[in-house]
Amino acid sequence: MAAQPRRNRVSDPDMSSPHIRKPVSVQREMFTVLLALVPGITAYVWQIGAGILVNLVLASLTALAAEALVLKLRARPVAITVTDGSALVTAWLVVLALPSIVPWWLTVLAVLVAIVGAKHLYGGIGQNPFNPAMAAYCAMIVAYPALMSQWPAIGNTDFTTQWHLILGGERAIDGLTGATALDAMRTGLRGHTDVTSILSSSAFGFVGGRGWEWIALGHLLGGLFLLATRTISWRQPLSFIIGLGLTASVFWLIAPERFPSPLFHLASGGAMLAAFFILTDPVTSSTTPRGKLIFAVGVGIIAWFVRTFGAYPEGIAFGVLLMNLCVPLIDRSTQPATFGQRKEKRP
């Protein structure tokens, strides 16, 4: 017999193949998303005011603290999960979805609903069926409809005023708060004013709400960056734009005086934010190639109906939650065929 053979380590962490890995990480993906949000936020600060920054800081701190606390209570690894950046992404999306002048406690509450309620009660990152940011937005708009429909007045970017409002100051002063373009359009249409005369009001710019168009453009830029770095799939953004745009186009062509143009819909509210940052959340979106298309088209269509006929000003969040519900069903029915079962043409 040969000399006693050297044994490999038994408790090898690298149990089986593969023994090499691509240098990628969740962290990197999450921070790419955060980076891609910067253009939109910059446009926000430029057009609407720096008040949003206060809420961003507040939300980030709340999210990190809440996540760390929950992980600690559950005896799960804290450091690696808190630093993966997912909580920050959720927090920033919550802030971008809320009016930037909501009182500080509402931001904190929304972030807590998102991080604790919608994410960690389901087991944490990767396991939540509902988009945390959108769940929090819906919860807030149902619970505090008044506060959630007061947006900073366009043209008044004064930081002190916004600071004051965020700290919970008196809100019933005209000129400090306003309605969004979507709100103005809805109220106008329900008062039987036609689209053209609504659009001529000072609240509207080239295609959407004045100022808001620039933010949408910022998000579009960020989204294109994510597409270029292959962080997100093209499927959800494209099919969402088609879903919302096509529905809007059909009705707009039928009755242009009663329904605003598809461009208006795409440039208003959170359409661009949703297209590139919310629908592309891998955890709660459908995961099969065809499923992604169905998911995003569904959100687009629901968003248009809720915006046009519903009781709430913005329908995307509800659309996202509703389609989140359908994801298991969509995924199950769009499971791709495996190698050898595909219907691709054979030679």
């Binding site: 962490p13 005896a75 799960r76």
Partner: peptide, 10 residues
């Protein structure tokens, strides 16, 4: 049989 993978997670 292969073992259940040893992981950092619970």
């Amino acid at each position: 049989r292969w073992k259940y993978p040893v992981t950092g997670l619970k």
